[in-house]
């Protein structure tokens, strides 16, 4: 493998994200581990969106729906495991993370399939708006449905378990999230290089040409959208475990906007774009927040400058122009 500049930067990023929590642990500053975990999880969610947005060119303004569904899967399963009440058809809840992950990914994927099936009939601005509308539907449902806390959200009193380790220890939980993130990045790289991924990217660039070689762009996109939803849903489950809490704010349209922001900040369509973006975003948030109560103003300003003048995002600045395809 030739180590080009972007690959090198990617390796440095991955190593840095791994090193910071160990350093923080050694220095007795566990809060920085929490911050790094947050970066890893947001990067995972954005990696999911990057499949649809970066590869497929599908600007989904509704991925918060999948993020929130994943979160609620974690919250609801844990709540039932805690109370001992059966869930559906006599199935009980669970506190096992890996079961929660599978359920979260499958459920988000299925909802993604349903939303995608209708939304992908449209394109352009219509697609952006219809995905937003579906996310709003889920949001209002979560707020007004009384069974699982409504607007108050749902607390997970003790973080869910993973066989053989103590997940309450910040460093352990970080490592779990880190490994899941690496796996998702691996999946992204695999898909990008696969026949399916090539078709997805080709459909973005020239729909007509793809159709003429006998591939149905609609099916390719729908599959891509569902996988994208599943990965973001998995991130939502981890996010709920990080905060030990899930609420409708995970489903709000600001969340959808933030996920897009992460990708653009890092660099659209790039493998490590979401990670670079998430790191930058969380650091901005933390550093600016420490400086001024008006941090949102400056965050907006920085975003604006990035969109207008630094279109490749952080990786674009560091590694030069992306090679597409």
């Amino acid at each position: 493998m030739i180590l080009n500049r972007e690959t090198l930067i990617n390796l440095v990023l991955a190593a840095l994200l791994l090193a910071v929590p160990f350093a923080a642990d050694a220095l007795g500053q566990p809060f920085y581990i929490t911050l790094a975990t947050r970066i890893a999880i947001l990067a995972l969610a954005a990696t999911g969106l990057n499949l649809a947005l970066g590869l497929g060119g599908l600007v989904s303004f509704g991925h918060a729906a999948f993020f929130g569904i994943g979160g609620y899967v974690a919250g609801i399963l844990a709540a039932h495991a805690f109370s001992g009440e059966p869930l559906l058809f006599g199935l009980s809840g669970t506190k096992q993370m890996w079961v929660i992950w599978i359920v979260a990914a499958i459920l988000s994927g299925l909802v993604g399939l349903a939303i995608g099936a209708i939304s992908l009939r449209t394109s352009g601005v219509y697609f952006i708006m219809i995905t937003l509308a579906f996310a709003q539907m889920v949001y209002y449902f979560a707020i007004s449905w009384p069974a699982y806390g409504g607007e108050d959200g749902l607390s997970i009193l003790v973080r869910n378990q993973f066989p053989g380790v103590n997940t309450m220890r910040p460093l352990t939980f970080f490592l779990i999230c880190y490994v899941v993130l690496l796996a998702a990045l691996g999946l992204f790289a695999l898909i990008r290089a696969s026949r399916f991924g090539t078709a997805l990217q080709a459909a973005r660039q020239n729909e007509v040409r793809v159709a003429t070689v006998g591939i149905q762009p609609y099916r390719i996109r729908l599959t891509g959208f569902a996988i994208s939803a599943a990965v973001t849903g998995l991130a939502g489950a981890l996010f709920a475990d990080l905060n030990r809490f899930v609420s409708p704010s995970m489903l709000s349209w600001h969340m959808s906007g933030e996920l897009i922001v992460l990708i653009i900040l890092g660099g659209t369509g790039r493998l490590f774009g979401p990670l670079a973006g998430a790191a930058l975003y969380v650091i901005f948030e933390y550093a600016l927040g420490g400086l001024t109560e008006r941090w949102q103003f400056f965050l907006g300003l920085i975003l604006l400058v990035v969109v207008l003048f630094a279109r490749g995002g952080l990786l674009g600045l560091l590694a030069g122009k992306a090679k597409h395809g």
């Binding site: 500053q29 566990p30 905060n243 809490f245």
Partner: peptide, 16 residues
């Protein structure tokens, strides 16, 4: 007024 932010701040105040 964001719950997840409040949790994060609480973690920081307790841990750091």
């Amino acid at each position: 007024q964001k719950p997840e932010l409040a949790v994060q701040i609480a973690d920081k105040m307790i841990q750091s």
